[in-house]
Protein backbone atom coordinates (compact mmCIF):
# COMPACT_ATOMS: atom_id res chain seq x y z
CA UNK A 1 0.00 0.00 0.00
CA UNK A 2 1.26 3.47 -0.86
CA UNK A 3 2.11 5.94 1.90
CA UNK A 4 -0.04 9.04 2.26
CA UNK A 5 1.34 12.20 0.66
CA UNK A 6 -0.29 14.23 3.42
CA UNK A 7 -1.02 13.07 6.91
CA UNK A 8 -2.78 15.28 9.46
CA UNK A 9 -3.21 14.03 13.02
CA UNK A 10 -5.24 15.90 15.62
CA UNK A 11 -4.48 19.13 13.82
CA UNK A 12 -5.95 22.30 15.28
CA UNK A 13 -5.53 25.89 14.22
CA UNK A 14 -7.31 28.88 15.66
CA UNK A 15 -7.10 32.58 14.97
CA UNK A 16 -7.89 34.24 18.29
CA UNK A 17 -11.49 33.27 19.02
CA UNK A 18 -12.07 31.81 15.55
CA UNK A 19 -11.38 28.13 14.97
CA UNK A 20 -9.89 27.31 11.56
CA UNK A 21 -9.32 23.58 12.08
CA UNK A 22 -10.41 21.57 15.07
CA UNK A 23 -8.87 18.16 15.80
CA UNK A 24 -8.53 17.55 12.08
CA UNK A 25 -7.48 14.05 11.02
CA UNK A 26 -6.93 13.13 7.41
CA UNK A 27 -4.62 10.99 5.27
CA UNK A 28 -4.41 11.88 1.60
CA UNK A 29 -3.15 9.26 -0.81
CA UNK A 30 -1.47 9.86 -4.21
CA UNK A 31 -3.78 10.67 -7.12
CA UNK A 32 -6.45 13.34 -7.33
CA UNK A 33 -8.20 14.10 -4.05
CA UNK A 34 -11.06 16.52 -3.61
CA UNK A 35 -11.42 18.53 -0.42
CA UNK A 36 -15.06 19.49 -0.23
CA UNK A 37 -16.76 21.75 2.26
CA UNK A 38 -18.87 24.85 2.51
CA UNK A 39 -17.25 28.27 2.64
CA UNK A 40 -15.50 28.75 5.98
CA UNK A 41 -15.22 25.01 6.61
CA UNK A 42 -11.43 25.10 6.93
CA UNK A 43 -10.26 24.12 3.43
CA UNK A 44 -8.06 27.17 2.91
CA UNK A 45 -6.70 26.92 6.46
CA UNK A 46 -5.69 23.35 5.68
CA UNK A 47 -3.95 24.49 2.49
CA UNK A 48 -2.12 27.25 4.37
CA UNK A 49 -0.90 24.72 6.92
CA UNK A 50 0.27 22.43 4.12
CA UNK A 51 2.19 25.27 2.48
CA UNK A 52 3.75 26.45 5.75
CA UNK A 53 2.17 29.89 5.62
CA UNK A 54 0.70 29.32 9.06
CA UNK A 55 1.64 27.09 11.96
CA UNK A 56 -0.67 24.61 13.67
CA UNK A 57 -1.44 25.29 17.31
CA UNK A 58 -1.80 21.59 18.07
CA UNK A 59 -1.25 18.33 16.20
CA UNK A 60 1.04 16.92 13.57
CA UNK A 61 1.18 17.51 9.86
CA UNK A 62 3.40 15.67 7.40
CA UNK A 63 3.57 16.78 3.79
CA UNK A 64 5.57 14.44 1.54
CA UNK A 65 7.13 13.05 4.74
CA UNK A 66 8.26 16.46 5.96
CA UNK A 67 6.96 19.08 8.33
CA UNK A 68 5.97 22.17 6.34
CA UNK A 69 6.38 24.94 8.94
CA UNK A 70 9.66 26.87 8.46
CA UNK A 71 10.76 24.36 5.86
CA UNK A 72 11.24 26.25 2.61
CA UNK A 73 13.00 23.31 0.94
CA UNK A 74 9.67 21.47 0.71
CA UNK A 75 8.25 24.33 -1.39
CA UNK A 76 10.11 22.97 -4.40
CA UNK A 77 8.00 19.82 -4.18
CA UNK A 78 4.56 21.40 -4.38
CA UNK A 79 2.84 24.15 -6.29
CA UNK A 80 0.01 26.22 -4.89
CA UNK A 81 -2.82 27.74 -6.89
CA UNK A 82 -4.53 29.92 -4.25
CA UNK A 83 -8.25 30.66 -4.15
CA UNK A 84 -7.59 34.37 -4.57
CA UNK A 85 -6.15 36.36 -7.42
CA UNK A 86 -2.47 37.09 -6.71
CA UNK A 87 -1.57 38.12 -10.24
CA UNK A 88 -0.07 41.47 -11.28
CA UNK A 89 -2.28 43.07 -13.91
CA UNK A 90 0.49 45.24 -15.32
CA UNK A 91 2.73 42.27 -16.09
CA UNK A 92 2.46 39.94 -19.07
CA UNK A 93 1.84 36.28 -18.47
CA UNK A 94 5.42 35.57 -19.51
CA UNK A 95 6.84 38.18 -17.09
CA UNK A 96 4.80 36.73 -14.25
CA UNK A 97 6.02 33.23 -15.01
CA UNK A 98 9.61 34.54 -15.21
CA UNK A 99 9.22 36.07 -11.76
CA UNK A 100 7.85 32.81 -10.42
CA UNK A 101 10.62 30.83 -12.10
CA UNK A 102 13.23 33.16 -10.60
CA UNK A 103 11.83 32.51 -7.14
CA UNK A 104 12.37 28.81 -7.83
CA UNK A 105 15.98 29.50 -8.88
CA UNK A 106 15.19 28.93 -12.54
CA UNK A 107 16.78 31.20 -15.13
CA UNK A 108 18.02 31.64 -18.67
CA UNK A 109 17.16 29.42 -21.61
CA UNK A 110 15.96 26.62 -19.35
CA UNK A 111 13.33 28.88 -17.83
CA UNK A 112 12.26 30.21 -21.24
CA UNK A 113 11.84 26.65 -22.51
CA UNK A 114 9.84 25.63 -19.47
CA UNK A 115 7.60 28.72 -19.81
CA UNK A 116 6.84 27.67 -23.39
CA UNK A 117 6.04 24.14 -22.22
CA UNK A 118 3.68 25.14 -19.41
CA UNK A 119 2.02 27.76 -21.60
CA UNK A 120 1.19 24.99 -24.03
CA UNK A 121 0.01 22.64 -21.28
CA UNK A 122 -2.46 25.22 -19.93
CA UNK A 123 -3.45 26.38 -23.42
CA UNK A 124 -2.08 29.91 -23.05
CA UNK A 125 0.59 29.92 -25.76
CA UNK A 126 -1.10 32.63 -27.81
CA UNK A 127 -1.86 34.88 -24.83
CA UNK A 128 1.33 34.49 -22.81
CA UNK A 129 2.78 37.78 -24.12
CA UNK A 130 -0.32 39.80 -23.26
CA UNK A 131 -0.87 41.87 -20.10
CA UNK A 132 -2.59 39.87 -17.37
CA UNK A 133 -5.00 42.78 -16.83
CA UNK A 134 -6.62 41.89 -20.14
CA UNK A 135 -7.14 38.20 -19.31
CA UNK A 136 -10.56 36.65 -18.73
CA UNK A 137 -11.26 34.87 -15.43
CA UNK A 138 -10.62 31.51 -17.08
CA UNK A 139 -7.30 32.72 -18.49
CA UNK A 140 -6.28 34.05 -15.10
CA UNK A 141 -6.98 30.66 -13.56
CA UNK A 142 -4.93 29.01 -16.30
CA UNK A 143 -1.96 31.28 -15.74
CA UNK A 144 -2.19 30.58 -11.99
CA UNK A 145 -2.10 26.86 -12.79
CA UNK A 146 0.87 27.50 -15.11
CA UNK A 147 2.71 29.12 -12.19
CA UNK A 148 1.75 26.13 -10.03
CA UNK A 149 3.33 23.59 -12.40
CA UNK A 150 6.24 25.73 -13.65
CA UNK A 151 8.86 24.15 -11.38
CA UNK A 152 7.43 20.68 -12.05
CA UNK A 153 6.44 19.80 -8.48
CA UNK A 154 5.11 16.37 -7.62
CA UNK A 155 2.13 17.74 -5.69
CA UNK A 156 -0.32 20.39 -6.89
CA UNK A 157 -2.57 22.20 -4.43
CA UNK A 158 -5.48 23.79 -6.26
CA UNK A 159 -7.68 25.86 -3.96
CA UNK A 160 -11.09 26.48 -5.56
CA UNK A 161 -9.69 26.48 -9.10
CA UNK A 162 -13.15 26.69 -10.66
CA UNK A 163 -14.41 29.63 -8.59
CA UNK A 164 -15.83 32.43 -10.69
CA UNK A 165 -15.31 30.74 -14.04
CA UNK A 166 -17.97 30.24 -16.71
CA UNK A 167 -19.21 26.73 -17.64
CA UNK A 168 -16.88 26.43 -20.65
CA UNK A 169 -13.84 27.47 -18.61
CA UNK A 170 -14.88 25.03 -15.88
CA UNK A 171 -14.92 22.14 -18.32
CA UNK A 172 -11.55 23.18 -19.73
CA UNK A 173 -9.99 23.48 -16.27
CA UNK A 174 -11.41 20.11 -15.21
CA UNK A 175 -9.95 18.55 -18.37
CA UNK A 176 -6.64 20.27 -17.60
CA UNK A 177 -6.61 18.86 -14.06
CA UNK A 178 -7.22 15.35 -15.45
CA UNK A 179 -4.41 15.85 -17.91
CA UNK A 180 -2.01 17.11 -15.24
CA UNK A 181 -2.53 13.89 -13.34
CA UNK A 182 -2.75 11.34 -16.14
CA UNK A 183 -0.22 12.74 -18.62
CA UNK A 184 2.16 14.64 -16.37
CA UNK A 185 2.00 12.49 -13.24
CA UNK A 186 1.20 15.17 -10.66
CA UNK A 187 -0.64 14.26 -7.49
CA UNK A 188 -3.38 16.81 -7.05
CA UNK A 189 -5.41 18.07 -4.12
CA UNK A 190 -8.29 20.21 -5.28
CA UNK A 191 -10.73 22.02 -3.05
CA UNK A 192 -14.25 23.14 -3.81
CA UNK A 193 -17.49 23.96 -2.05
CA UNK A 194 -19.46 22.33 -4.88
CA UNK A 195 -19.66 18.56 -4.46
CA UNK A 196 -20.72 17.70 -8.00
CA UNK A 197 -17.83 19.68 -9.46
CA UNK A 198 -15.35 17.69 -7.42
CA UNK A 199 -17.16 14.52 -8.38
CA UNK A 200 -16.35 15.30 -12.02
CA UNK A 201 -12.64 15.45 -11.17
CA UNK A 202 -12.18 12.58 -8.73
CA UNK A 203 -13.93 9.84 -6.80
CA UNK A 204 -11.64 10.33 -3.80
CA UNK A 205 -12.95 13.05 -1.56
CA UNK A 206 -12.65 14.36 1.96
CA UNK A 207 -15.55 16.28 3.41
CA UNK A 208 -14.55 19.15 5.66
CA UNK A 209 -17.03 20.89 7.89
CA UNK A 210 -16.56 23.33 10.75
CA UNK A 211 -12.84 22.64 10.89
CA UNK A 212 -13.10 18.84 10.91
CA UNK A 213 -12.70 16.15 8.28
CA UNK A 214 -16.12 14.55 8.76
CA UNK A 215 -15.72 11.85 6.10
CA UNK A 216 -13.17 10.73 3.56
CA UNK A 217 -12.79 7.99 1.01
CA UNK A 218 -14.48 6.95 -2.22
CA UNK A 219 -17.42 9.12 -3.14
CA UNK A 220 -19.77 6.10 -3.25
CA UNK A 221 -19.05 5.44 0.44
CA UNK A 222 -19.81 9.04 1.27
CA UNK A 223 -22.96 8.96 -0.82
CA UNK A 224 -23.96 5.86 1.15
CA UNK A 225 -23.51 7.81 4.38
CA UNK A 226 -25.58 10.63 3.00
CA UNK A 227 -28.34 8.28 1.79
CA UNK A 228 -28.84 6.90 5.31
CA UNK A 229 -30.42 10.21 6.20
CA UNK A 230 -33.80 11.41 4.89
CA UNK A 231 -33.79 14.13 2.26
CA UNK A 232 -36.25 17.01 2.48
CA UNK A 233 -38.26 17.80 -0.65
CA UNK A 234 -40.96 20.45 -1.07
CA UNK A 235 -43.71 20.02 -3.69
CA UNK A 236 -46.06 22.90 -4.63
CA UNK A 237 -49.19 22.67 -6.78
CA UNK A 238 -52.84 21.49 -6.91
CA UNK A 239 -54.34 18.14 -5.81
CA UNK A 240 -51.63 17.57 -3.24
CA UNK A 241 -53.91 15.78 -0.72
CA UNK A 242 -54.24 12.68 -2.93
CA UNK A 243 -50.56 12.81 -3.67
CA UNK A 244 -49.72 12.92 0.03
CA UNK A 245 -51.91 9.86 0.71
CA UNK A 246 -50.12 8.00 -2.06
CA UNK A 247 -46.72 8.96 -0.61
CA UNK A 248 -47.62 7.54 2.81
CA UNK A 249 -47.95 4.09 1.22
CA UNK A 250 -44.37 4.20 -0.09
CA UNK A 251 -41.75 2.48 2.05
CA UNK A 252 -38.91 4.97 1.45
CA UNK A 253 -40.95 8.00 2.45
CA UNK A 254 -40.50 8.81 6.13
CA UNK A 255 -43.02 11.61 6.58
CA UNK A 256 -45.33 13.99 4.72
CA UNK A 257 -46.45 17.38 6.05
CA UNK A 258 -48.59 20.20 4.65
CA UNK A 259 -47.78 23.87 4.73
CA UNK A 260 -50.26 26.11 6.58
CA UNK A 261 -52.02 27.29 3.41
CA UNK A 262 -52.04 23.74 2.00
CA UNK A 263 -50.29 24.96 -1.17
CA UNK A 264 -47.23 22.72 -0.66
CA UNK A 265 -46.17 19.48 0.99
CA UNK A 266 -42.91 18.72 2.73
CA UNK A 267 -41.75 15.15 2.11
CA UNK A 268 -38.90 13.37 3.90
CA UNK A 269 -37.40 10.69 1.64
CA UNK A 270 -34.85 7.98 2.41
CA UNK A 271 -33.96 7.15 -1.20
CA UNK A 272 -34.07 10.39 -3.17
CA UNK A 273 -32.93 8.74 -6.41
CA UNK A 274 -35.81 6.23 -6.28
CA UNK A 275 -38.22 9.00 -5.35
CA UNK A 276 -37.27 11.16 -8.30
CA UNK A 277 -37.50 8.13 -10.62
CA UNK A 278 -40.98 7.18 -9.41
CA UNK A 279 -42.44 10.66 -9.07
CA UNK A 280 -43.39 11.34 -12.74
CA UNK A 281 -45.51 8.16 -12.90
CA UNK A 282 -47.17 8.86 -9.55
CA UNK A 283 -48.05 12.40 -10.60
CA UNK A 284 -49.53 11.10 -13.86
CA UNK A 285 -51.59 8.49 -12.00
CA UNK A 286 -52.91 10.97 -9.43
CA UNK A 287 -53.82 13.60 -12.00
CA UNK A 288 -52.40 16.38 -9.82
CA UNK A 289 -50.78 19.57 -11.03
CA UNK A 290 -47.30 20.23 -9.67
CA UNK A 291 -46.03 23.78 -10.20
CA UNK A 292 -42.74 23.55 -8.34
CA UNK A 293 -40.54 20.91 -6.79
CA UNK A 294 -37.33 21.59 -4.95
CA UNK A 295 -35.00 19.84 -2.58
CA UNK A 296 -34.00 21.56 0.61
CA UNK A 297 -30.86 19.45 0.63
CA UNK A 298 -29.26 20.52 -2.62
CA UNK A 299 -26.73 22.64 -0.83
CA UNK A 300 -23.66 21.08 0.66
CA UNK A 301 -24.37 22.57 4.06
CA UNK A 302 -27.39 20.24 4.38
CA UNK A 303 -25.25 17.21 3.51
CA UNK A 304 -22.84 18.12 6.28
CA UNK A 305 -25.66 18.66 8.73
CA UNK A 306 -26.70 15.07 8.06
CA UNK A 307 -23.19 13.72 8.47
CA UNK A 308 -22.44 15.48 11.71
CA UNK A 309 -25.96 15.11 13.07
CA UNK A 310 -26.29 18.86 13.49
Amino acid sequence: MKAPIISAKNLSKWYGQVIGLNNFNLDIMPGITGIVGPNGAGKTTFFKLITGMIKANVGELQVLDQKPWMNTAIHAKFGLCPDYDNLSDDMTGREFLKLSGGLHAMSGAGLDKRISEVSEIVGMTDAIGRKIGGYSKGMRQRIKIAVTILHDPSLLLLDEPLAGTDPLARKEIIDLIFSLHREHGHDIIVSSHVLFEVERMTKNVALVYKGRAVASGHISEIRGLIDKHPHNIVIEGEGLLELAKRFLDMDYIVSVGFSQDKSSIHVQVLKPDSFFNDLPQIVADMDCDITRLHSLDDNLEAVFRYLVGW
Binding site: M53, A76, F78, L80, L87, L99, S100
Partner: peptide, 15 residues
Protein backbone atom coordinates in the same frame (compact mmCIF):
# COMPACT_ATOMS: atom_id res chain seq x y z
CA UNK B 1 -2.80 42.92 2.01
CA UNK B 2 -3.23 42.02 -1.67
CA UNK B 3 -1.85 38.53 -0.94
CA UNK B 4 0.71 38.68 -3.76
CA UNK B 5 3.28 37.75 -1.10
CA UNK B 6 1.95 34.17 -1.32
CA UNK B 7 4.12 33.55 -4.35
CA UNK B 8 7.24 34.45 -2.39
CA UNK B 9 6.22 32.63 0.77
CA UNK B 10 5.52 29.40 -1.11
CA UNK B 11 8.75 29.50 -3.09
CA UNK B 12 11.83 27.58 -1.86
CA UNK B 13 13.59 30.88 -1.17
CA UNK B 14 14.56 31.15 2.50
CA UNK B 15 12.64 33.93 4.20
Amino acid sequence: EDKSITQILTSPLDR
